[in-house]
Amino acid sequence: MEKLYSDEELLMISGIQHYYYCKRQWFLIHVEQLWEDNIYTVRGDVLHEKVDNPFILESRKDRFISRSVPIVSYSLGFYGVSDAVEFMVDSEGYYIESKKNYFKVIPVEYKSGKPKKDNCDAVQLCTQAMCLEEMLDIKINHGFLYYGKTRHRQRIELDLTLREEVLELSKAMHQIINNDRIIQPDYCKKCERCSLKNLCIPKTKTHYKSVKNYIKAKLNDKEDLYA
């Protein structure tokens, strides 16, 4: 594949899920380097502590699992770590010299919650698969999303539609960085669950013309309370 991005231009793979869920959330985390925990992020951290150990290598008769696998794609402009990659014996798969055999490569991403109605988790998994494809010069047809709340993993077909979505998201994210754009808050229902709510102050744009007016209104509220 054509190398479109340099090391300095690479973005974190985890950011594509943030960007899909909320562009403002992605901007605060990956551009402004801001972060706060809430119950949802803590649950995710606990789950990943259990699975993200690179020194744990599970092996069975026809497969083995590698955890915390570093991955990168210079055609997409992403880098990061795959929670787990399963290698299953397959005569048409990727040849691993140390194993003296061919293996099908299957990425697995762990999530603490439950399956989503949109593709925010699927695009992250697909991005990981596309990175592995570029690194190993192989084709990956599917991967799995494991959800801690249901303790069940969901098979995700990495079809053309999903891959095109990843490409469009990659282009949009890099354009924002290259053009020094600032993503403004845009309040909606899901803001109430976001750990960055107090940093983002999403209602400043929706209900007020400026941050100055937002602060002024809040000060007036307090004055009325103690009057």
Rank of each mutant, 00 (worst) to 15 (best):
K171Q: 14
K222Y: 04
C22F: 06
A122H: 13
S73Y: 00
L158V: 02
N101K: 11
V72Q: 09
I182R: 09
T127M: 01
F78H: 04
E9A: 06
Y19M: 05
L169F: 14
S73E: 09
N220M: 13
K197Q: 02
E49V: 05
I183Y: 11
K218V: 00
Y79D: 09
H152Y: 14
M173S: 10
V42D: 07
E58G: 11
P70N: 02
V108P: 01
D90Q: 02
A227Q: 10
F78Y: 13
I182M: 13
C188K: 14
W35I: 05
C22L: 08
R163N: 09
E134T: 07
R67C: 08
R163W: 05
S98D: 12
S6I: 05
D224A: 03
I56F: 06
A129P: 02
D224S: 02
G15C: 01
K100F: 01
L160N: 13
D159I: 03
H18W: 06
N141Q: 03
R63K: 10
E157G: 00
Q25L: 15
E58H: 14
E36H: 08
V42E: 10
K197R: 13
L28M: 13
K209G: 14
M173W: 03
E134K: 04
P115G: 11
E133F: 02
G148I: 08
A122L: 09
D7R: 07
Y226R: 04
A227R: 10
G93W: 08
Y146I: 07
Y146C: 08
I215S: 10
L4Y: 11
S75M: 02
A217C: 08
C194T: 11
E168Q: 15
D221H: 00
T41H: 01
N198V: 00
C131W: 00
K117G: 12
